[in-house]
């Protein structure tokens, strides 16, 4: 186990930011920490990294207790903080070199690592730029380069794609996959479901400082009762017929959204063909009909009772 967080409680004056929070990270995985704004993602990372003291609980990194003086553990860790954290008075290359120098003394190794990091984030044409001259997306890439330049085994990325255009976002996500393929364990916080779904092997869903569920995407989706939704719009339908639809196997609920009906099923097998038979039987005319498999949003909605959307 690379990281183990057990029952950690962190209070800011009145506010409880982490409420008996648990988390386990296995070597080689990309773990997503998914939760809405203010749920405690950054706080959790800062506690793991000993940037913050916590009130209760236990944190281990690489099997050892993490303290501010655990320099050999720190050597293996990289952080890409949520806010861009670079010197405004240093150029792209100087920034990367400085932060690399906090880990690596050898000049030649450092030169090589800096080159590789610049290459990695695609800032080759911007090495002499000052951060204020970079676009938002490029600044984020610089922020990433400063965090990973020393080739850490364990990388924390705290919402690295917030306020980033689609192009840079894809570039960043691909980069993270690459880091992972090269052997780094990644902890990725986000409140974008699609990103978590696309990137992560495993996800921990967080809300109000608690870990409310964890598992692979399939495991998480299996936790909820609605496993398929079919949206359909009929040309003309009577209430009586609608009531009869509850007889279709596995239907648990039917919601009306304007002229659309959302039919929820409790498992995901043959629902569409069952519905189509029903339509044929009652001679109904439909103008649209499509099936939706559950998303993480549905999982989140069912577990917390609220939507996870911007």
């Amino acid at each position: 186990m690379v990281v183990k967080v057990k029952n950690v409680v962190k209070r800011y004056e009145e506010k409880i930011a982490l409420d008996h929070f648990n988390m386990e990270v296995n070597e080689g995985e990309i773990l997503g920490l998914l939760g809405p704004n203010g749920c405690g993602k950054t706080t959790a990372i800062n506690c793991i990294l000993s940037l913050l003291k916590f009130d209760k609980g236990e944190i281990q990194v690489f099997g050892r207790k993490m303290t501010p003086n655990s320099y050999d553990i720190k050597r293996q860790i990289g952080l890409v903080p949520q806010e861009v954290s670079v010197f405004e008075n240093l150029t792209v290359k100087e920034n990367i070199d400085y932060f690399c120098g906090l880990y690596i003394d050898d000049k030649n190794t450092r030169r090589q690592y800096v080159e590789e990091a610049i290459e990695f984030v695609g800032l080759k044409d911007y090495v002499r730029f000052y951060p204020r001259k970079l676009s938002g997306g490029l600044k984020r890439r610089l922020n990433i380069a400063c965090g990973i330049v020393h080739k850490p085994k364990l990388i924390f990325l705290d919402e690295p794609t917030v306020a980033v255009d689609a192009q840079s976002r894809n570039f960043i996500l691909e980069g993270i996959k690459k880091l992972n393929r090269e052997g780094s364990t990644v902890i990725y916080t986000t409140h974008y479901l699609e990103e978590a779904e696309m990137l992560c092997n495993r996800i921990i869903i967080m809300d109000n400082g608690k870990d409310i569920a964890s598992g692979t995407i399939e495991e998480l989706k299996a936790m909820i009762t609605t496993l398929e939704k079919i949206v359909v719009r009929f040309v003309n339908i009577e209430d009586e017929v609608i009531n009869k639809m509850y007889k279709i196997p596995h239907v648990i609920d039917i919601e009306r959204n304007g002229e659309d009906f959302i039919i929820k099923f409790e498992n995901g097998i043959n629902n569409l063909s069952n519905l189509l038979s029903f339509i044929a039987e009652y001679n109904l005319t439909y103008i649209k009909l499509y099936s939706q498999l559950p998303t993480l949003n549905d999982v989140f909605l069912e577990l917390t009772g609220k939507e996870l959307r911007d």
Binding site: L79, E88, F99, L102, Y103
Partner: peptide, 18 residues
């Protein structure tokens, strides 16, 4: 004030620089 900037100092704090 550049070196003591909280964000930059945090990077130093998590690093292996004593």
């Amino acid at each position: 004030s550049d070196f003591r900037d909280e964000r930059i100092d945090n990077r130093r704090k998590i690093s292996s620089k004593k």
